[in-house]
């Protein structure tokens, strides 16, 4: 095919998808407060979205903390500044790695599962039959999942950072012999509550919103065939990762750019 025409087609497809995404969000937003009236549904989803992501998030957080401790110790020992290891590990985790890596893991673990689940419900006409039973699937199926993802993300990110900080502690203090008091006191002194912690939480809330939005949209928009669902699942992981990394740059520039 003519490459120019192909480019035009791809652009138009992307624009149409973006439009559908926005319409989906517009449909979803008014359903969100209503979904809060049925907390049981959200709790069920919190289980599959949050609890089931726990293992991968905790294990990854631990390893990331270990690596940060090792690398940080390596670099800082050049400057005789290994007491700052705690600050370095904590700031890397709280500001960046906690929210970002958690969101990426979330996309792979929970996001893809959400897309596949919704896509299959669509392919097997479950959503359609719900509609015919006069139940709005956006409200009954999509909204509780959205809440669950939105709530789970900052909690998972905080757990990730916590485990990571202890991972750094283990390598730095227990294995490499950094002074324990220095690790903690430097950390506490230099990590700022509203500069670092709050910004990290804001990041993970934004990522939770976007990850849930993309995963649920892709499932809802999937072509109702097994091939369509598998494509949608891939798109969820790819698009969420790109969106998270892009937004992370944007948010970092906004939050930490001018000081």
């Amino acid at each position: 095919m003519n490459p120019l025409r192909r480019l035009g087609q791809l652009t138009l497809d992307a624009l149409a998808r973006l439009g559908r995404m926005l319409l989906f969000l517009l449909h979803l937003l008014p359903a969100l407060p209503l979904a809060l009236g049925r907390p049981r549904l959200i709790v069920q989803q919190l289980y599959s979205v949050g609890v089931l992501s726990l293992v991968i998030v905790l294990v990854s957080g631990g390893f990331v903390g270990l690596v940060l401790g090792l690398q940080g110790h390596n670099i800082l020992s050049n400057f005789n500044a290994t007491e700052s290891l705690g600050v370095m590990v904590a700031l890397s985790l709280v500001r960046e790695l906690g929210p970002v890596v958690t969101a990426l893991l979330f996309a792979g673990r929970a996001g893809s599962a959400l897309t596949a689940e919704i896509g299959l419900m669509k392919a097997t006409e479950q959503l359609s039959s719900m509609e015919m039973m006069a139940v709005d699937p956006i409200r009954r199926v999509i909204a509780p999942r959205f809440w669950a993802a939105f709530i789970a993300m900052p909690l998972l990110a905080a757990l990730f950072s916590m485990v990571g900080i202890y991972g750094g502690y283990f390598i730095g203090v227990v294995v490499l012999g950094v002074d324990e008091a220095a690790y903690w006191s430097q950390l506490v002194r230099q990590v700022d509550f509203d500069e670092d912690t709050v910004n990290g939480i804001i990041k993970s809330l934004v990522f939770g919103f976007v990850a849930a939005w993309i995963a649920l949209f892709e499932g809802f928009d999937a072509r109702p065939t097994s091939e369509g669902v598998s494509r949608a699942t891939t798109r969820t992981v790819v698009n969420t990762s790109l969106a998270v990394l892009g937004l992370d740059f944007l948010l970092t520039a906004l939050m930490f750019g001018n000081s």
Binding site: V51, V94, P154, L155, L159, M162, Q190, D192
Partner: peptide, 25 residues
């Protein structure tokens, strides 16, 4: 299921609080 979710949410909130209160000024 409820216990698991409760445990998860509680652990998450504790993590946020520890980060906020214990690990930052």
């Amino acid at each position: 299921l409820e216990l698991a979710v409760g445990g998860f949410v509680a652990a998450g909130i504790v993590a946020v609080l520890v980060l906020a209160l214990q690990m930052s000024n």
